[in-house]
């Protein structure tokens, strides 16, 4: 076999390895989805989405969990996005990246991004639920989830800010701009698509979190929708977890229906975020 033939073989081998691995992952996903849809699809109806949970399978609905998730995720976004993006701007544009303090901060943020979520649940329980007495409310849940996703938002935003070339900053300074004008007028819009990607990913993670919310005391049987940030709540994954843990076979199927609803909510969120991103990407090449 000549060298050329061998190298062509290697090339083909590598290509096939990549292909097989990709399809294996896709295959697993497909099996998972088909299982969920075959179990849950028949339970999906407007009544299911618009009813409160019940101990009778045929009356059980997911209304309180859908609204709970919407409340919690909205407040999570309100808390985490401004704080995360502002932190990223401070670290990238204002702080001296060579200082020991800033480097320590960076390492800590990176470590926090990898912390198990249940630890955030314990923190939320001590700090928000008991410490300032918010109990198992929407606020406690969203503050806890905000802490959980804050490091990811900070890191993703930092990367997006770093990707904005300095030539744009200098161009803006040369127009007599002040630093805040350079940041707000040039760097932020240029970095926004990247920041949005980080925000989408972390909010998607937050909407699927179960453990920290169970710890802070999210209820599993809620026969009402939250009317304000101080109300008790449940969220989709907690409701699904609860159904899946019941002995009756019907409730396992209802859990699958709940997963379909969760996927739909996630899909809608991502779609909206992608649309926002597209709008700002208009001026990129």
């Amino acid at each position: 076999m000549t060298t050329k033939e061998r190298r062509m073989k290697q090339d083909m081998l590598f290509r096939w390895c990549c292909r097989i691995v990709t399809f294996m992952a896709l295959g697993v996903l497909l099996v998972l989805l088909s299982h969920i849809f075959s179990q849950g699809f028949k339970w999906l109806s407007w009544d299911f989405i618009n009813s409160y949970p019940s101990r009778f399978a045929d009356q059980a609905g997911i209304k309180s969990a859908v609204w709970g998730s919407i409340w919690v995720i909205s407040f999570t976004a309100i808390f985490s996005v401004p704080f995360g993006v502002a932190t990223a701007f401070f670290l990238e544009e204002y702080s001296n990246s060579n200082s020991k303090f800033v480097r320590l901060l960076q390492i800590n943020i990176a470590n926090l991004a990898g912390m198990p979520s249940i630890i955030y649940g314990l923190l939320g329980l001590t700090l928000f639920a008991r410490g300032i007495g918010l109990g198992g409310s929407v606020l406690t849940g969203s503050l806890t989830l905000s802490l959980l996703i804050l490091p990811v938002i900070v890191i993703a935003s930092q990367e997006a800010i770093k990707a904005v070339p300095n030539s744009i900053r200098y161009g803006a300074y040369a127009m007599g701009a002040r630093k805040w004008q350079v940041i707000v007028g040039q760097v932020l819009p240029a970095a926004l698509p990247g920041i949005m990607t980080g925000v989408i990913l972390s909010l998607s993670r937050a909407i699927g979190e179960t453990a920290p919310l169970i710890i802070i005391g999210a209820l599993s049987y809620v026969a009402f929708t939250p009317l304000g940030p101080f109300d008790d709540f449940t969220v989709l994954p907690v409701q699904i977890y609860n159904w899946a843990g019941r002995p009756q076979e019907e409730f396992h199927e209802i859990a699958s229906a709940g997963i379909i609803v969760l996927l739909a909510v996630l899909f809608t969120m991502n779609l909206v975020a992608i649309m926002i991103r597209q709008k700002f990407q208009k001026y990129r090449m």
């Binding site: 070339p165 030539s167 744009i168 200098y170 161009g171 803006a172 300074y173 040369a174 127009m175 007599g176 040039q186 819009p189 240029a190 001026y283 990129r284």
Partner: peptide, 15 residues
């Protein structure tokens, strides 16, 4: 810098 403008080596229009 408002009174003394600058054009750079590589074109750097704003995005």
């Amino acid at each position: 810098r408002r009174q003394i403008g600058m054009v750079f080596q590589k074109p750097n229009p704003f995005p």
